Amino acid sequence: MAKPKYDLIMLKLGGEALAGPEGTGISAPRAFDIAKRVKEIREMDVQVGIVIGAGNLWRGKEGLEMGMDQATADYMGMLGTVMNALALMDALEKAGVETRVQSAIEMRAVAEPYIRRRAIRHLEKGRVVIFGGGTGNPYFSTDTAAALRATEIGADILIKATKVDGVYDSDPNANHGAKKYDRLTYLDVLQQRLAVMDSTAVSLCMENKLPILVLNLWDEQALTKAIMGEEVGTLVSN
Score class of each variant (00 low, 15 high):
Arg42Ser: 08
Thr144Leu: 14
Glu230Ser: 08
Leu13Gln: 02
Leu86Ser: 06
Met68Leu: 15
Pro138Cys: 14
Glu22Pro: 05
Leu57Pro: 07
Val82Lys: 13
Asp90Ile: 04
Leu64Ile: 13
Met197Phe: 03
His122Pro: 08
Ala31Asn: 04
Glu62Lys: 14
Asp182Asn: 13
Asp7Gly: 15
Val38Ile: 15
Asp165Arg: 00
Gly14Lys: 08
Gly25Glu: 08
Gly177Tyr: 11
Met10Tyr: 11
Glu207Tyr: 13
Asn84Val: 02
Met44Glu: 11
Gly14Ala: 14
Ala226Val: 01
Lys160Gly: 02
Asn216Ser: 04
Thr144His: 15
Ala54Met: 14
Ala178Gln: 10
Leu18Asp: 02
Ile157Leu: 15
Gly177Arg: 12
Lys180His: 05
Gly14Phe: 13
Lys163Val: 01
Asn175Ile: 05
Thr200Val: 02
Asp169Thr: 06
Leu64His: 07
Ala71Glu: 12
Ala71Pro: 03
Asn216Val: 01
Ile153Asn: 04
Asp90Val: 07
Gly96Thr: 13
Glu65Ile: 09
Asp7Trp: 09
Ala174Val: 05
Gly77Asn: 03
Leu88Asp: 01
His176Arg: 14
Leu11Phe: 15
Leu13Cys: 08
Asp90Leu: 12
Gln221Tyr: 00
Ala71His: 05
Val38Leu: 09
Glu43Gly: 03
Val232Glu: 02
Ile157Cys: 15
Glu124Asn: 15
Val128Gln: 03
Leu148Trp: 11
Leu18Val: 00
Pro21Ile: 09
Gly60Asn: 12
Asn84Leu: 03
Lys163Ala: 00
Arg100Leu: 06
Val46Tyr: 10
Ala71Lys: 06
Val110Asn: 13
Ala161Ser: 02
Met76Lys: 12
Arg59Tyr: 09
Gln221Pro: 00
Val101Asp: 08
Asn56Val: 03
Val82Cys: 12
Val214Ser: 00
Thr135Ser: 06
Val128His: 08
Leu213Ala: 00
Leu190Cys: 03
Leu13Trp: 11
Asn216Ile: 00
Ile34Ala: 03
Ile26Arg: 09
Met197Pro: 04
Val189Asn: 03
Arg127Glu: 13
Ile9Leu: 10
Met89Trp: 10
Gly136Ser: 07
Glu106Cys: 11
Asn208Glu: 05
Val46Ser: 07
Tyr114Leu: 10
Ala146Arg: 12
Gly55Ala: 04
Pro29Val: 07
Met76Pro: 00
Thr81Lys: 07
Asn137Cys: 01
Glu230Met: 13
Leu184Trp: 02
Gly49Gln: 06
Leu8Val: 05
Ile130Thr: 02
Ala73Trp: 04
Val128Ala: 05
Arg117Asp: 15
Asn238Met: 12
His122Cys: 11
Thr72Val: 15
Asp165Gly: 01
Leu148His: 06
Lys3Val: 11
Ile34Met: 08
Asp74Met: 09
Asp171Pro: 06
Leu210Asn: 07
Val101Leu: 08
Leu92Phe: 02
Lys3Arg: 12
Ala150Pro: 14
Leu18Ala: 05
Val128Thr: 05
Thr234Glu: 00
Val128Tyr: 04
Pro138Leu: 10
Gly229Arg: 09
Asp182Ser: 12
Thr151His: 11
Val232Asp: 00
Leu13Ala: 06
Tyr168Pro: 00
